[in-house]
Design a protein around this nucleic acid. Structure first.
Length: 671
RNA sequence: GCUCGCGUAGCUCAGUGGAUAGAGUGCUUCCCUCCGAAGGAAGAAGUCGCAGGUUCAAAUCCUGCCGCGAGUACCA
């Protein structure tokens, strides 16, 4: 019986006993982990709650301790339970039957569902993340989005879901238009010239997205004084939206090149996608028209004849104002007949949920080195390619979008729920997160001049338009260089290739953990020293702990092979003695902690919070370091105890490796 | 104005109503003849923003206030 199963059974015991003995129905049984191993393995503060409910129901006053005693008897007869204590005013502290649990779980998989198969009965969910405007290189703020989304999809897969990963490409928006304005009107380039430039850049080791980053900034600066240039933006945007003209062709080239660059950046971090849905197709395949039709029919939106919004199609939205004068109704179709971004987003969300009644056409966009495919949407049926999986139609849709967009996300969720009340708002989940900002010092370190006012601010928002930000590839490069220095100092005898590979794994671990250790609603104020650190609460610390654990198994004597150690556990009395001895608590608490991975993953999935798993992983690594320092594992003289220690070390390294893999972090061969 | 988020150790942050509020970092002092020191041990460091309330029990829930941030477009 795994820990999760035991917990489930115990909760059920409490629930049914409360119902049978006291006639009180519980839906949620609170359970907690006691602060110390000596206080038990799982605790129920449920007697207090019961006392209150009995009083409410019957007026009868019952002593919590007395109630706890009744529950105690029931819990004691449950499987895997050693003993139960009533502590304090009425706590129920449950102690597991240690040796039974330990022997049963010695070779259990830490996460049964990893890696997940696309089983036929698995629930399909969609996760949209990254969605960087394809007009420049990704910066560290974008990476927070991608790492969050990628980690969350790994967590969902670990809970048995069939996950589809989408990266939305806004290839017809103003940001792309701005860079196109730069190319055409500042650089005076046509498509051929841009393709030539692209070739020159790649042959000199420079990247297209970095070039666009600078150009985008240049356009932004120029707009401030050049009204004529600014007027070109609307013109260019219109051409791009319309399609089928040289400007649109040029824009498509620029956007597609940037998408390739961003995919390469993310691949460095182990982040991949299944599908790239593009805005151009949402426009050209008339997704909005279809959604519009449904919304009109269902009366979700209405045409405004007078007032502030005269001539527009609006959706009522009162959440943000106390008034009922409809001032805050959301406009979906402007008075000139064009659709707003939010309108398009509702149509797109409907497609994701499989309730739009339209589909994209698809073609293969990219194949990763190991053969995994990324597909992209196309509006031209003739260009669609065979072999595309079925996309969209998720049971639940997770959108990883920063918290500044929670207002439009609210509207999308409510709009979609109004069209499909049976699915409701629960089907759309906004995984919001706070931005990555720069400390004033970090901004100056990047060479930006700050005003007096800015210098006093707690942080400064990154801005692609201003070119203010830490580019993802730059930071990964720095991390890899620093890690390589450390690897070289320790393993000068390894091959260059191997050293670089290890440095890469460490760099990815450092960056991913750094972005995951903060909870979603914490603004990360970026600090170079902290982000580049390999000490303390870092990915590197967790990797190092797993590497040490692995090294134990390289030095194991033949007689102490894992199999023979597990066999030695069959002497359950000897195991029992060891686990109940002086150092037994220490060994036992390690075994319990490492068994909590599955529970933690489920908790992270339920709370939509990857940081929960990151914190657990760090605590597991720390606990293993402690265990490692307290016990001589290989040199332990007692045969059974040595077997127990080796088995615990094995369980710990497998749990740690699984936890790290779910965070998208690999364990290097050596460090 | 309204909506949302935040305020916990010098700093950066964890903390599903439950037991003595915890990490990392910084600071002081130790520990490699050892299964790898990217590590470990010990110490100092707290008015959980303020004031009320609910509760057997509040950092956690409710109300008010103070401070900080974001959002509140016929932009995306």
């Amino acid at each position: 019986m795994s820990l999760t199963e035991i917990q489930k059974a115990l909760r059920e015991t409490v629930r049914s006993t409360a119902a049978a003995e006291f006639g009180v129905e519980f839906d949620q049984i609170a359970a907690e982990t006691p602060p110390k191993t000596e206080l038990g393995d799982i605790a129920f503060p449920v007697a207090f709650e019961l006392a209150k409910r009995i009083k409410q129901a019957t007026g009868e006053k019952r002593n919590p301790r007395e109630i706890a005693e009744v529950l105690k008897t029931a819990l004691e007869s449950a499987r895997s339970v050693g003993r139960v204590e009533v502590a304090g005013a009425g706590y129920l502290n449950v102690f597991f039957e240690r040796s039974t649990f330990f022997i049963e779980n010695a070779d259990a998989e830490p996460l049964p569902a990893l890696p997940v198969s696309k089983a036929a009965n698995a629930i399909k969910v969609c996760v949209e993340h990254t969605s960087v405007n394809p007009n420049k290189a990704a910066h560290i703020g974008h990476v927070r989005n991608s790492v969050m989304g990628d980690t969350f999809q790994r967590i969902l897969k670990a809970t048995g879901k069939n996950v589809e990963i989408q990266n939305y490409i806004d290839n017809t928006g103003v940001q792309v238009a701005d860079v196109v304005v730069g190319f055409v009107y500042l650089e005076e380039m046509d498509l051929a010239a841009i393709m030539e430039l692209d070739r020159e850049l790649s042959s000199s080791g420079k990247s297209f997205d970095y070039y666009c980053w600078d150009l985008y900034t240049k356009v932004g600066v120029e707009y401030q004084t050049n009204e004529e240039l600014k007027a070109k933006r609307a013109e260019v945007l219109h051409m791009i939206e319309e399609g089928g003209n040289p400007t649109a062709e040029l824009a498509d080239y620029v956007a597609t090149r940037n998408v390739h660059c961003i995919l390469e950046t993310m691949e460095r971090l182990g982040i991949r996608y299944d599908l790239l849905p593009r805005e151009s197709e949402i426009l050209h395949l008339h997704f909005w028209d279809k959604a519009f039709e449904q919304m009109k029919q269902l009366g979700v939106i209405h045409y405004e004849k007078e007032g502030k919004h005269a001539g527009c199609w609006v959706m009522p939205f009162e959440e943000h104002s106390g008034t009922d004068d409809h001032e805050n109704d959301k406009i979906l179709v402007r008075s000139n007949g064009t659709v707003t971004y939010t309108g398009k987003d509702i149509a797109y969300q409907m497609w994701k949920l499989g309730i739009l009644g339209l589909d994209f056409h698809y073609r293969l966009f990219h194949r990763y080195q190991d053969g995994q495919e990324v597909w992209i949407t196309t509006g031209d049926e003739a260009k669609s390619e065979p072999g595309a999986p079925e996309f969209g139609g998720g049971e639940t849709i997770y959108n990883v979008i920063d918290s500044r967009q929670s207002y439009p996300q609210d509207i999308v969720r409510k709009g979609v729920a109004a069209i499909s009340p049976e699915r409701g708002e629960k089907a759309s989940i906004h995984l919001s997160y706070e931005m990555v900002a720069l400390s004033p010092a970090a901004a100056e370190e990047l060479g930006f001049l700050l005003s007096e006012e800015d210098r006093k601010r707690p942080f400064i928002e990154m801005s692609g338009r201003k070119g203010l930000g830490v580019k993802a590839d730059d930071l990964i490069d720095r991390l890899e260089a620093n890690a390589l220095g450390e690897v070289e100092a320790r393993h000068s005898d390894s091959s260059e290739e191997e050293k670089k590979f290890i440095a890469h794994q460490i760099a990815v671990g450092a960056l991913r953990y750094f972005l995951l250790k903060f909870t979603r609603n914490t603004v990360i104020v970026f600090d170079f020293k902290e982000a580049l650190s390999f000490e303390g609460e870092t990915g590197c610390f967790c990797q190092y702990s797993a590497v040490r654990a692995n090294s134990i198994f390289r030095k194991l004597a033949a007689a102490d092979s894992l199999d023979s150690c597990r066999e030695r556990l069959s002497d359950s009395d000897a195991v029992k003695t060891i686990l109940s001895s002086g150092t037994g608590d220490d060994i036992w608490s390690m075994a319990v902690l490492l068994s909590r991975l599955e529970e933690t993953v489920e908790q992270a999935a339920a709370a939509n919070e990857p940081a929960i798993l990151a914190k657990y992983t760090f605590n597991l690594a720390k606990a293993f370091n402690l265990f490692y320092h307290h016990h001589r594992i290989i040199a332990e003289p007692n045969d059974t105890k040595r077997a127990v220690l080796i088995v615990v070390a094995d369980m710990a390294r497998r749990s740690l490796t699984s936890a790290l893999a779910t965070l998208g972090i690999e364990v290097p061969e050596k460090m």
